[in-house]
């Protein structure tokens, strides 16, 4: 139960398990991905806050809604197969 909105929040499959450490690692990867599109992200109270360079931000409950928010802020599709992104992330 979410104390703020009083509704049941279903944890998204990709956000399940791993606790605090997993969230930190996941958010670090998201930072690297979203930087490619001129966006930033931070984790706040189990949610993601996505922001652009113009001071706009959106809150996303889970990874699925994070991509929709990021796409709105970036104003273009965010494709994981983008060759530049893949090159930037490659170990």
């Amino acid at each position: 139960m979410c104390a703020l909105c009083g509704v049941l929040r279903n944890e998204h499959w990709a956000d399940e398990g791993g606790g605090r450490r997993a969230r930190v690692i996941r958010t670090a990867l998201l930072e690297r991905v979203l930087a490619r599109f001129g966006l930033g992200v931070r984790e706040w109270a189990g949610q993601y806050v996505v922001s652009d360079g113009k001071g706009r931000s959106e809150v996303a409950d889970d990874l699925a809604s994070l991509w929709a928010a990021a796409e709105r802020l970036a104003g273009r599709p965010l494709d994981p197969l983008d060759a530049g992104l893949v090159e930037a992330l490659a170990p």
């Binding site: 990709a14 996941r26 991509w67 929709a68 796409e71 994981p80 197969l81």
Partner: peptide, 11 residues
């Protein structure tokens, strides 16, 4: 998980 959610959102 990050990759698959992004892929399914985009494609």
């Amino acid at each position: 998980g990050v990759w698959l959610t992004m892929l399914l959102h985009a494609r």
